[in-house]
Amino acid sequence: MQLTSTYQEYLGALRSGDRRVALNTVRMALAEGADIRDLYMEVLQPAMYEVGRLWETNQFTVAQEHLATAITQSVMAQIYASVICNPPIGRTMVATCIGGELHELGIRMVSDFFEIEGWDVFYLGANMPPDDVISMIDEHRAHLLAISVTLGGHVMQVREMISAVRASHVGKRVKIMVGGQPLNRAPEAWKAIGADFMANDARDAVKMATEVLV
């Protein structure tokens, strides 16, 4: 299904800060048969990249950028029912992100992609202490830990998180996946920080995890 016009309408709604129009645009596309994964990859994600570009070129204020982020978070929550439609496959993922609330959209999208595939996902929010992450992995017998990072300056925190998990009693049984813009720019960095693999986007994350956890 072609989603170009949906993208334009959605971006227009973000530009004008109109949550209702944004939500209606996405709901209409779903009602017309759009795959929710395509909506994420071809509408929500590129729209948020465009918002970032608009801020960088001084066409959006920080307030507009924050509002666009909040609207997209809200839209994703409202259509979440479409995400949890598949039966569980017996796989569990714990997900977190480093770097604050503004940067949690990416890992939310990744989490939703896994849920669509039938994974049980426990999203912990941003900047969780390593001990809490380890507890969640243990409590839910997680197969996979997903860590997202948005800023280059936070990559070292990811390494610290991975070191703490590896050194813990759950370190040997959980696979660790990382992703985010700074890692996309340095494709070998995931090895240096101790992850098992990295993913370029949400779709790639599910594919990689499926291959690694055969």
């Binding site: 994703m76 929550a77 604050g100 609330e101």
Partner: peptide, 14 residues
């Protein structure tokens, strides 16, 4: 950041 955090709480509840 407060408003964003509240929005995240709300969306998590939804």
């Amino acid at each position: 950041h407060e408003v964003l955090a509240l929005n995240i709480e709300l969306t998590t509840l939804i």
